[in-house]
Nucleic acid binder design. Sequence first.
DNA 1: TTGTACGCGTTATCAG
DNA 2: CTGATAACGCGTACAA
Lengths: 354, 354
Amino acid sequence: MNGPNGRAQTGPTIRDVALQAGVSVATVSRVINDSPHKVHRATRRRVLRAVVRLGYHPNAVAQGLRRGTTRTIALIVPDISNPFFPAVARGAEDVARRHGYALVLGNTDGDAARERAYLDILRKRWVDGVLFASAGGDARALRALHAGGVPAVLIAREATDGEIDTVLVDSFAGMRLATSHLLRLGHRRIAYIGGPRGLPVARERLRGYHQALRDHGIRPDPRLVVAGDFRVEGGRTAVRRLLARRRAFTALAAANDLMAIGAMEALRAAGRRIPDDVAVVGFDDIPFAAFVDPPLTTVAQPTYRLGALAMERLLALMRGEAGDARRLVLKPQLVVRRSCGARMPQRRPGRAAM
Amino acid sequence: MNGPNGRAQTGPTIRDVALQAGVSVATVSRVINDSPHKVHRATRRRVLRAVVRLGYHPNAVAQGLRRGTTRTIALIVPDISNPFFPAVARGAEDVARRHGYALVLGNTDGDAARERAYLDILRKRWVDGVLFASAGGDARALRALHAGGVPAVLIAREATDGEIDTVLVDSFAGMRLATSHLLRLGHRRIAYIGGPRGLPVARERLRGYHQALRDHGIRPDPRLVVAGDFRVEGGRTAVRRLLARRRAFTALAAANDLMAIGAMEALRAAGRRIPDDVAVVGFDDIPFAAFVDPPLTTVAQPTYRLGALAMERLLALMRGEAGDARRLVLKPQLVVRRSCGARMPQRRPGRAAM
DNA sequence: TTGTACGCGTTATCAG
DNA sequence: CTGATAACGCGTACAA
């Protein structure tokens, strides 16, 4: 492409600045990095003037090569258009920017191969660290990551072997809380739409549901439990399967909000009113949980904070301030809205109060 | 940091591979880039073996320096957690990935200074091109961008001077369509919540609203028009201001869905039923427009496509396949849902049919 | 206080 | 077909 002495760069280089200022490149470098090395005030001014005169910007790639760091961090998510993740990305990018880092974004759709592919950009020194929020993949990729000594933090995702830093909300406690709320409202037959099998957070939430039932002396009925995919469509089909089983229930807990929304839609399509016939709870508190019909009772995940905290932890890791506190578990919080009704369920109809 | 002959790289370099395979670095380079240059089959095998043996990955930063390209593209948005943008990002990233490019994400909050700051990463050769969806900033940044000859494409945003490639939906036609729908339903007094002043798309939408009224021989009433900020809160406050004016209206058009949602909330809080007392239309068709209460009638922006098309155009630009078709304007489409009611407005109460 | 020169890891040119 | 080597632009030990 460009010959052995061709110029790849379109703009001025440090040499141009040096020439213009009548100094050496070393001096220019010292000035623009304001290095501890002493530089005469007059010289510095001359350099600075040359810099603005030429509109010089240091070539970040060259700096990266020289310094061995790119000040770039990757955020790997299953799908940024899943409303759970944008706020995570925003939180992460905010603290990254504040520290002079850029964020590169990768979508995996939970595909293990894609996850591995993104991890490779690490090995190619594109990025200095990784925030990993992708849920689907295999543990191998993670293990390789840790083995490579790469700075990484997991978001809302458990490492199977707990060897990697993690920031998440307590899923078990959260779903236990949500289910307990339904129980306290007087519900006894509570259906459950779970997440993808094998996914640790999905297991945790199911465990929380079971625990809450047992707390109230109720034996879980496996015929009220069905697996989902964490998406709206999964909620719809789950409800259809549930209804086909002809097993009565007065409440429903979904392992996340998207499925709860799909479920509410399907329930209504089947003639059930919410919350009068079926009270519903979700998990995550995605941004529009408050605006759906009816407003969704759910467990809050502070997604922005999750992203921000994870990024902070990652930067600390990269600075070598490792520490050993590897798991940061946030306490879940229940947000009660109309999808649960305002009072104990009654046999008589009538819309819930607003 | 690392001395004149220190190793920045933790992993094996091309030299290690060359050594291991007993060939020169040139040969290794030829093999891993499968260059047209002939390489003996046996030698190639030896090299490949060394590569896997050592777990070699080419250092992308060094490649970037040498080749003068990073295979990275920046996507600059006001706020990724604004539900309009995630799908844009997804579309862009999908086609970028397909072409071997990575996407770096920047949030500006519409702040001109931040926009410029992100544009600087271009000048520093961090990225090969920019997708610009940020709406707030000044035209100067854009002009500088174009002057620098940097590959760039605007998304859902007009360049004031039309010198930069753009991909967007026809805002004028869209809002005209939405407003006409209200008019055809029989509404005559239609309030309007606009976008931020000075923003071209906001102006276009307002223009569309006016045009529709005139099409039906109605003189626009400035007291029914109020400015907003494209966010939920802006919709709420706009409605409050509107109501304070004590000017009757039976329908409301909002320049985007977020404001429409805020408006519906505020209207209901003021005792107005939707759509019986006030029919509402929005713009954008954000992902959950179908799930809010009541489901929102709106103008569809195919955000995923917008991102994908913009990225395709950008890559073409970077390959030098410029062409001259600089503006790609998609036709808007109206999505009718319950927030407009199912039939002509009636004086008598009663919930709209589902 | 300033300048010289080397190397970061890679690719491409040129000579063998 | 293969190898030696000069850049890409920058930061820094070392000499001046």
